[in-house]
Design a protein around this nucleic acid. Structure first.
Lengths: 124, 124
DNA sequence: ACCGATAGATGTAGAATGCATCTATCCGGT
DNA sequence: ACCGGATAGATGCATTCTACATCTATCGGT
C-alpha cells in the first residue's frame, strides 16, 4: 500500500480542482501557465499530465470552456475561462476546503498541545 | 475522470496517516475506536475498509505495533501503539501538513480577496 | 538545419478508493 | 435457547487516480 512519505509536493485532485478554478476565476489562462502558477503556489511537484487531463475533464463538465489561441511566440495555446457553472463549483469547493482547513488546524493544534505537554512534563 | 464534488468528508491517505499517528501518539487504541475518533474530528465519511488496511500497512512499516486484546464486552480488539519510528513519522507528516495548511490558507485568502474585490466593485 | 523552450496530449503500470460483503463475539430481550 | 443488534476486524473487486515517460508540434535563435 506504500504509506510512503508523499504529500511532499504532489497535487491530488482534491486540491487541483479548487486551485484551477480559483486561478481561472482570477482570469482566463492556459494549461502551461496554470501549471506554473500552481507550482508557484507551493506545489512544486505538480505534473503536466494530470493537469491537462483535468482541464479537459472540467470542460466536459462545463466548469470551464476553452478554445485554441495562436500565440505570438511559441505554439498555440488552449485558453480556458471559467463558466458560470464553474463559478458555482468554485464556491462549493472553497467551502469544502474551509472544512479541510478547520480539520487541519485542529489537528495541528492537537499535535502542538500534545507536544507542549510532553515537553513541560519532562522539564520539572 | 469524474471531477465530482468529493472532498466532502473523504479521507485520503494524505490525512489518514497523520491522523492515525496523532491519535496513537495520544495513547494506544484500536481500529474501531480510531475510526470513530477520526469521524469525530470532522471526517464523517471515513470508512472502515481503508482504515483497517492502512493500520496493517503502517504496521508492516513498523510505524505501529499491535496485538490482540480480549475485551470485557464484545469481540477481541487489536490494540495499536505508536513505535519510535512511528513517532518520527508523525513529526515528519505533521511538518508536511503544516505546508499544506500554508497553501490552503493562502489559497483561501486569495479567494476571499477576489471575492471582496468583486463585491466592492459591484457596490458603487 | 538544428536546438531548446514552450505547449498540449496520451499510454500505461501500479496504487488507492469506495463499496459491498464476510466472520465472529458478546449482550439483552423473549 | 435463540435472535437481533452492536462491536470488531478483515477481504474482494471494480473503478479511479497517480506518476512517469513519451509523443507531437511550433517558434526563436544560432
Amino acid at each position: 500500500m506504500s504509506t510512503n512519505g508523499d504529500s511532499n509536493g504532489t497535487l491530488p485532485r482534491h486540491y487541483l480542482k479548487p486551485c484551477l478554478l480559483l486561478l481561472l476565476a482570477e482570469g482566463p489562462s492556459h494549461g502551461y501557465e496554470l501549471l506554473e502558477q500552481v507550482r508557484r503556489m507551493g506545489i512544486k511537484g505538480a505534473e503536466p499530465g494530470g493537469l491537462y487531463r483535468y482541464l479537459r475533464a472540467m470542460e466536459k463538465e462545463e466548469m470551464v470552456s476553452s478554445w485554441w489561441e495562436p500565440s505570438q511566440a511559441g505554439p498555440a495555446r488552449r485558453t480556458y475561462v471559467l463558466t458560470e457553472h464553474g463559478r458555482k463549483g468554485l464556491n462549493e469547493s472553497v467551502q469544502s476546503l474551509r472544512d479541510v482547513r478547520e480539520i487541519l488546524v485542529s489537528l495541528l493544534d492537537r499535535y502542538d498541545t500534545l507536544h507542549n505537554r510532553a515537553a513541560s512534563s519532562s522539564r520539572p
